[in-house]
Computed example of a mutant assay.
Amino acid sequence: MESRLTWQGVEIDGPTALALLEWQREMGADEAMLDAALDRTDLPAPAAVAAAPPAPAAPAAGVSAAAQAAPPVGAQQSLLGDDHAEALAQAEALAAGAATLDALAAAQQGFDGIELKRGARNFVFADGRAAARVMILGEAPGEEEDARGLPFVGRAGQLLDQMFAAIGMGRADPDATRALYVTNVIKWRPTGNRRPTAEEIALSLPFLRRQVELADPEFLVLMGNTPCAAALGREGILRLRGNWTTAFDRPALPMTHPAYLLRNPVAKRESWADLLSLAAKLGL
């Protein structure tokens, strides 16, 4: 007899249950965190609606209503929270105190100010040769990177290796001229492969800046929006890609992330043009 399960009062068969489980895995729920199932649809009754606040007083003469309603600058900064400011100060101190890449990796791995650390399997620092002329900045580890503790090892990473091999470069190349040093802005996997938040980028930036200083590459490649947000303070990779700029005091080339190319193969033509531009800078 085929076994049947019940989910939210509805009887489902085994194949349907497996399909639901696979869907949860693809969304990032790939590990049980509780001893017993938790029905997150069983919400408490809504609280009573509070009475409407009194209408604001009329603005003072010469002051707009919007300006009067806005909190002062100090209050706006405090919206980030004391915990965030304290964590950022700690990150900056830890990064500044690291004299080598190994020391920096140990300092960042021990940093507890970013919540991502609690949900990730592994700390993913870097791969390739630190003495390489080219340093690639990606966004954040994915599922396979989280499992192996190395950046760019999934499908997108395999495509990355193929792309740079086409211009004679690789992360394992013994020649520093043709080698790659690969890392991500975020060193822990965001749950469900979501985009990192602005706060997570800000807390990671002191470590990333110090990593660039210690590796001291000649060129940077910014793969996707998150590296552009961290290094340039701008997003819009489809507008930025292919245009040389400056990041962390050195030439930088924004490129579309290999994961985007897997979803949009037609964009590979533009990425090939970007690679040729990098090869020309390197004299390859």
Rank of each mutant, 00 (worst) to 15 (best):
P44T: 03
T100F: 03
A52S: 12
P71I: 09
P56V: 09
L88H: 02
D39C: 03
L43D: 07
A70N: 12
P53Q: 09
Q68R: 08
D82T: 02
D39F: 04
A67G: 11
A93G: 01
A52Y: 08
L79A: 13
A95E: 02
A45N: 05
A55C: 07
A36L: 14
T100P: 05
D42S: 14
H84D: 01
L88T: 00
D102F: 03
P44A: 07
A91H: 01
L79Y: 07
A91I: 00
T100N: 04
P59N: 12
A48D: 08
A105K: 04
A75H: 11
A45R: 08
A87H: 09
A69P: 14
A66F: 15
D83F: 00
A65T: 14
S64W: 12
A50H: 07
A51M: 13
A45S: 08
V63F: 09
A67H: 14
A89C: 00
A105Q: 05
A89L: 01
L34F: 13
Q76T: 13
L80F: 14
A98I: 03
A45E: 08
A58D: 13
A95W: 01
A55D: 13
L104V: 03
P54Q: 11
A60P: 07
A47T: 10
G97L: 03
A65D: 14
A65S: 15
D102H: 06
S78F: 06
G81N: 05
G97V: 04
P56W: 11
A66T: 15
P56T: 11
A96F: 01
